Simulated scan of single mutants.
Amino acid sequence: MNAEKHVLNVVWDDYKREMGPALKEVNKVPYERIIADLLSVGEFYYYTLNIGDSSINNFHENILRLHGIKKYPWHLSEIISLIHPEDIPFVIEAERLAINKLREIGWAHKMNLKSSYCFRMRTGDGTYQLFHHQALTIKEDESGKMVEAINIHTNIQHITAINSYTVLISGISPRTDFYQIGLKPELMLKPSLPQSLTKRELEILKLIAQGHSSNEIADLLFLSSLTVRTHRKNILRKTEAKNGSDLVKRCIEWGLI
């Protein structure tokens, strides 16, 4: 197949030294670790993206049903065609900001840094619904150039239809990075977070969003269950959330997860 162009090439072509065709792979794909870090708040699918030619493969079967398509796409341009046209400019700028932040942090850490943001996509019933996009580099070549990424799309329309227009760069264990980059604050319909969350509270918040109970979070973070429950109460109080579901909704709208 001949290489095709797509709108993100206007961004990626500026980073050819860091992003390009695969040479000899030097790492195995940590799929179990990646799936464990999913935002578990709705139906999702994933696929792997070859950075060099934008071909895609290794699909989760949900992609067919969620988007009402009959065959698996082979190129990123087919995924982009499902995005609401009005959201394309945001997606281009979000991708540019995400890559710039990864470069600023250091490309050596790219396999432990996840970028995420939201946009609307066409679904099987013909409507556009809000999806949460997560991307993580999973393969590099001998020179350290990123050659393959996994993209995870989760339908969050049942939680909120409000896009925070925020790019989030977060660390994957052992890194604990957390960077929010707001693109269109004038379009954010929710007020600012009433009180800032601590680094530990943000860590617990991410695990709450993944569906973990307080006891499970305690085991994962080597904390007592009482400590986790105290943090959870403080998070609910600071975010003015009524319960766990309301907490996830508010934090998506604030661009915290």
Results as ranks from 00 to 15, higher is better:
V91N: 02
N9M: 12
T227S: 13
K110Y: 01
S214G: 10
E32S: 15
I105K: 10
D177A: 09
L226Y: 14
K238W: 11
H60N: 15
A209F: 02
M146G: 08
S225T: 12
N155L: 13
R200G: 04
G255F: 01
L38E: 11
L102A: 02
L183M: 15
E32W: 05
E93C: 00
Q134T: 06
P21R: 14
I34E: 09
T123A: 11
I235Y: 06
I152D: 00
S81M: 07
L207Y: 06
L66I: 15
L183W: 02
A98N: 03
R175A: 08
S224D: 12
I51G: 02
P85E: 11
E93R: 10
K206E: 12
S170E: 15
F222T: 11
I208N: 06
E32H: 10
I138S: 07
H67L: 09
H153G: 00
L64W: 13
I257W: 04
K249L: 04
G144L: 03
P30G: 12
L66R: 09
A98Q: 03
L82S: 12
A36S: 12
M111K: 13
V147Q: 02
K70W: 04
Q129C: 05
H158W: 06
P85H: 08
H75F: 13
V147A: 02
N9W: 13
R17T: 11
K24A: 09
G126Q: 11
R65N: 15
T154R: 01
N27D: 10
L187Q: 05
V91M: 06
H231A: 09
V7T: 07
L49A: 07
L205R: 06
D37C: 03
G244Q: 07
N27C: 10
F90V: 03
G182W: 04
I169M: 13
Y117W: 14
W107C: 05
S40G: 07
H60Q: 13
K206I: 01
E240G: 00
A22F: 02
T176V: 08
L197T: 01
N9Y: 11
Y15V: 00
N151E: 15
K5M: 12
E216M: 06
L113P: 02
N62L: 07
I83H: 03
P89T: 08
K233V: 00
S54F: 14
V7K: 14
T166R: 07
M146H: 07
Q210E: 06
C118Y: 01
E253L: 05
